[in-house]
Amino acid sequence: MSLKKKILSGLLAVSLIGTTILTGCSTKDANSGNTAKASENDNYPKKAMEFIAPGGAGGGWDLTIRTVSKVLQDTKLSPVPTPVTNRPGGGGSVNLAYMQEKKGSDNIISVYSSPLLLTNLNGTTELSYKDTTPLARLIADYAVFVVRSDSKYKTINDVIDALKKDPKSVKIGGASSVGSMDHIQFLMIAKAAGITNLKDIDYISFQEGVNSQLLGGHIDVLSTGLSEVTGLIESGDMRALAQTADHRVGTGVLAEIPTCKEQGIDGTFVNWRGLFGPPEMPEYAVKFWAETIDKMVQTPEWKKACERNGWDNAYQKADEFTVFLEEVNKGYEEILSEIGMLKK
């Protein structure tokens, strides 16, 4: 072999060896990256979660997410802390906007209920349940209509009769915005009771301190959730006129509250509550929390909390919950359209 050929052959061999080494390193590096990524997912969660109540302290969302957090800690189902943050405003739309900023995050879970759909349909926000990651439906809570203990209204029919004579004669209040849950749940019962001029009924929205507005005499009737005024009913500061389930719920004083149906009004309202992650929550996080929540709802601690708060078990896994949200959204759309509040 000539000297020239020997040199070319040697250069080719060196080149092939270098390529092999580089390729091997690249493959090794890539595999290391995949292993690290898989390991990271396997160890999830490693840092504290942010559990969010989209309303103020003491409300239904606050009670629900704090109960979830406590049960997860008490049962040691969560390997990390689950502190609760309150992000009130806009019937939950302020927090919904915040969740968009955390798109793809794996450490945020928020509780929501009917206003997640209603605030979109009534034009409060362009965002909807489709801008979240549904994780699970947990419970069914019910509306209750309460008055001060010294109120002249003794039954829900006393209120209905007064409204039929003069729709401006009774001031209804709630914590949700106009066209959202506390408003809609009262209008649904009023409609079922035969009131036709629903638009003329005065509804006043209070973002905070709604209980004190009733106790202070600024409104006549408070439309709210059963769990949100249990203590005030038990203390005798408030008197419950009716609740919106189709059956008696809870224990103690809650079980003594008559349904609207018992009083001749053929109407119900169910306030479901569920858990949601931010949009595009990573699949490993969705899987972990779906499995953890599934275990949680079977614990004695969770069942006792539901009984104590008058909550019905309405657990649905993510897939079922998503279908449920689509169906309920259509129903709310029809109601808002009927009373002229649909903005979509």
Rank of each mutant, 00 (worst) to 15 (best):
Leu342Lys: 12
Glu334Trp: 07
Asp166Trp: 15
Asp141Glu: 12
Asn86Pro: 00
Gly33Arg: 10
Ser69Asn: 04
Ile339Tyr: 06
Tyr203Ala: 00
Lys199Phe: 04
Ser227Gly: 08
Glu101Ile: 01
Leu12Gln: 11
Gly56Leu: 06
Ile139Tyr: 02
Asn86Leu: 15
Phe206Arg: 08
Lys5Gly: 05
Asn309Met: 13
Gln243Asp: 07
Pro279Arg: 05
His247Met: 09
Gly277Glu: 04
Pro134Met: 06
Leu215Tyr: 01
Phe276Leu: 12
Asp161Tyr: 06
Lys154His: 11
Asn211Met: 12
Gly274Asp: 06
Val178Arg: 08
Leu232Glu: 10
Cys25Ala: 15
Gly174Met: 02
Thr299Val: 13
Asp202Arg: 11
Val68Thr: 07
Ser223Leu: 00
Gln213Thr: 07
Leu3Lys: 14
Ser205Cys: 04
Thr251Met: 14
Gly225Ile: 03
Lys152Tyr: 03
Val221Gly: 01
Thr132Asn: 10
Asp312Leu: 08
Leu63Arg: 09
Ser113Ile: 01
Ile139Glu: 01
Ala57Ile: 14
Lys303Pro: 01
Tyr98Asp: 07
Lys28Thr: 05
Pro88Tyr: 05
Asn122Lys: 05
Gln316Met: 15
Pro88Arg: 06
Leu222Ile: 10
Gln100Met: 09
Gly225Pro: 02
Ile17His: 07
Gly236Asp: 03
Ile257Ala: 06
Asn313Arg: 12
Asn86Ala: 13
Leu121Ser: 00
Asn41Ile: 13
Lys6Glu: 14
Val159Pro: 01
Ala57Gly: 10
Ile139His: 01
Glu256Ser: 13
Ser177Lys: 04
Gly24Ser: 14
Arg66His: 09
Val270Tyr: 04
Lys343Asp: 03
Gly267Cys: 05
Ile109Met: 03
Ala36Ser: 14
Lys6Ala: 11
Cys306Leu: 13
Lys343Ser: 05
Gly274Pro: 03
Gly58Gln: 06
Gly173Gln: 02
Lys191Gly: 10
Ile335Asp: 11
Val111Trp: 00
Pro300Ile: 14
Pro83Thr: 01
Val286Ala: 11
Gly331Leu: 03
Ser26Met: 07
Ala162Tyr: 09
Asp319Ile: 13
Gln243Gly: 07
Leu8Met: 10
Leu226Trp: 02
Lys154Arg: 13
Leu117Thr: 07
Arg148Asp: 12
Asp312Pro: 09
Ile65Trp: 02
His247Leu: 11
Pro81Arg: 13
Ile184Pro: 00
Gly274Trp: 00
Glu262Phe: 05
Asn120Lys: 08
Ala48Leu: 06
Leu254Met: 15
Phe321Arg: 05
Ile204His: 02
Arg148Leu: 05
Asp158Arg: 15
Leu138Phe: 10
Pro278Ser: 02
Tyr129Ala: 02
Lys165Pro: 03
Pro79Glu: 10
Ala36Cys: 11
Pro115Asn: 07
Ala30Arg: 09
Asp182Glu: 10
Gly194Cys: 12
Leu187Ser: 04
Leu96Thr: 00
Gly92Ser: 08
Gly123His: 13
Gly91Leu: 05
Ala48Ser: 13
Phe269Asp: 00
Gln73Thr: 12
Ile265Asp: 02
Tyr98Leu: 13
Ile201Phe: 02
Asn86Asp: 15
Asn41Ala: 15
Lys47Asn: 04
Gly123Glu: 07
Ile335Asn: 06
Val94Thr: 08
Val80Gly: 03
Gln207Asn: 10
Asp237Ala: 14
Phe288Gln: 12
Lys304Asp: 15
Asp237Gln: 15
Gln316Gly: 10
Ala305Asn: 05
